[in-house]
């Protein structure tokens, strides 16, 4: 007897169960990131001196990482499109490219943080930097999680199996992209 899940569709929900599940994940993620960013915004507005700390963040590095994530999102949606066509090999290739985008993002982040930390801007330096590292750090953990899942999905997609998963991980990846779209102006532009 097969142990594979059979509840991949659910007529009552009007959409495949995995897609419904990922939207539930995203709804809960909105509360996590929304609470954190909402707290940051109210503190940022209340503390004028935080503008001085924020002036230390590098806008061009933030913009480069935004470019990288937007491009990786393009690859993710092209992977989805290939999966819709039943072309698992192309879908897998685009998923690898998306993962590569995540890797570039994290590498840039690593250099950026190394520079900041070596100059004394650590997570315990003050409340601004606590928010900075917490928000960007939780986001980076989501990038890592997305990359790991994407590599698993690419493995099966390459064999033309479970191609619906390509769309699901893509939706999650686009959400991670959207979170960064808001982190970028909050941490790098508003100075």
């Amino acid at each position: 007897m097969s142990a594979r899940p059979i509840a991949t569709t659910r007529s009552a929900a009007g959409m495949p169960t995995p897609r419904l599940a990922v939207w539930w994940v995203i709804a809960s993620e909105i509360v996590i990131f929304g609470g954190l960013l909402g707290s940051y915004i109210m503190h940022r507005i209340a503390h004028g001196e935080w503008a001085e700390y924020a002036a230390n963040t590098n806008t061009m590095i933030g913009a480069t990482n935004t470019f990288v994530l937007l491009t990786s999102s393009l690859f993710a949606v092209l992977a989805h499109q290939a999966a819709e066509r039943g072309d698992g090999k192309t879908a897998a290739r685009f998923l690898y490219m998306t993962t590569g985008g995540g890797l570039v993002f994290l590498t840039i982040k690593a250099f950026e943080w190394t520079s900041e930390i070596s100059h004394g801007m650590t997570i315990t330096a003050n409340t601004f930097w606590s928010f900075y590292y917490t928000a960007a750090g939780i986001h980076a953990l989501h990038v890592i999680a997305g990359m790991i899942i994407m590599l698993f999905v690419a493995q099966t997609a390459k064999r033309n199996e479970d191609l619906h998963r390509v769309e699901i991980i893509g939706i999650y990846w686009h959400f991670v992209d959207i979170v960064w779209i808001f982190l970028f102006p909050l941490l790098y532009i508003a100075k």
């Binding site: 001085e52 700390y53 100059h119 004394g120 650590t122 315990t124 330096a125 003050n126 409340t127």
Partner: peptide
Amino acid sequence: LGHGHGGDHEAESGHHGQSEHH
């Protein structure tokens, strides 16, 4: 602002952290 500790934390704790580069 040249010190790591600032804002409410600095005044509450009354100590300074490591220096911060600008």
